[in-house]
Computed example of a mutant assay.
Amino acid sequence: MTQAVGAGRATGFELLADLVADGDVVVLSGAGLSTESGIPDYRGETGRRRRATPMTYQTFVGSAEARRRYWARSHLGWRHVARAAPNAGHRAVAELQRRGLVTGIIAQNVDGLHQAAGATGVIELHGSLDRVRCLDCGERTPRDDLDRRLREANPGWAARAAEFNPDGDAVLTDEEVAAFRIVDCAGCGGVLKPDVIFFGENVPPDRVRTCYDLTERAGVLLVLGSSLTVMSGYRFVRHADRHAVPVAIVNQGPTRGDGHATVILDAPLGATLTALVARLTSR
């Protein structure tokens, strides 16, 4: 039985509180959880106001010009992500984990804001923008190191982003991109890529298996701020349903997983999760 928020908001909220109060909550979070921190999403409220085309793995590895465009735009966009602070939603998830109610966090986001809010053991399903990986030797290095090297390689580059897209992507002119110099791996001279999963790239199988195992053992799978449009996250909702694990969804707008949900709240994430923590405290 699915209960959606609308006229029966209190009933849906209380059902969510009941499910979370029982513990063993596994959180599956998406870009909608970070929009209140100023990081736009692809498909939610901020996504509908833009036309952002994400970089694909095939394009990145197949074209030096595509890599120049990506790193030029990301050089500015990364700073926007790095300056972002956790919002009330991230802090609420961390508090629920601290209380022992949340036992697992699967983050589709690549911004690290769960950890910045104090959460631990976060599974970064799609990786993290704060690391860089060499496609040749496999070495992983901090993004801050690459940022320093790119600044040194582009001392006179003074581009300013017209707007920011998801995943640390800034909108630049073709002229600004053409003037940007990229750098290679400091160790082997190979191609550098952010340590994130691009569209068209597969999540490592062991990471997927860990998420499946978490989902099977969960008391409830709590989806936060994800439209579940792509299979990468949606598969865990289907997996929960197959194993009779209740699914609760808090998101602004419909999701692909609504048909599997026990409770759906169409509501702002920060305010709803803050209220959830307060409700559980008062019990």
Score class of each variant (00 low, 15 high):
E175Q: 13
A161P: 04
A218K: 06
H114C: 07
Q58D: 13
A17L: 11
P205C: 12
R67Q: 10
R217I: 04
L135W: 09
G38L: 12
L224P: 03
G62Q: 09
T35M: 02
L214I: 08
L269I: 15
D184I: 00
V20G: 04
T215N: 03
V230N: 11
M55I: 13
V81R: 00
I249H: 07
S227G: 10
Q58V: 09
R50C: 02
R49P: 00
G253P: 01
M231Y: 15
L172F: 04
R49F: 05
A161I: 06
L113Q: 00
R207C: 06
V177H: 03
T59I: 05
T262P: 02
S74Q: 11
C137S: 09
G190R: 10
Y234M: 15
L33R: 01
C137Q: 11
R67D: 02
L269P: 03
G138I: 10
V250I: 15
L276S: 04
G6P: 02
A84H: 06
V93G: 05
I182M: 05
V110H: 00
G12M: 09
A64C: 03
D24V: 04
C185H: 09
G32E: 00
A116V: 05
V27M: 08
P205Q: 14
V102M: 01
A52H: 11
V247A: 05
A10T: 13
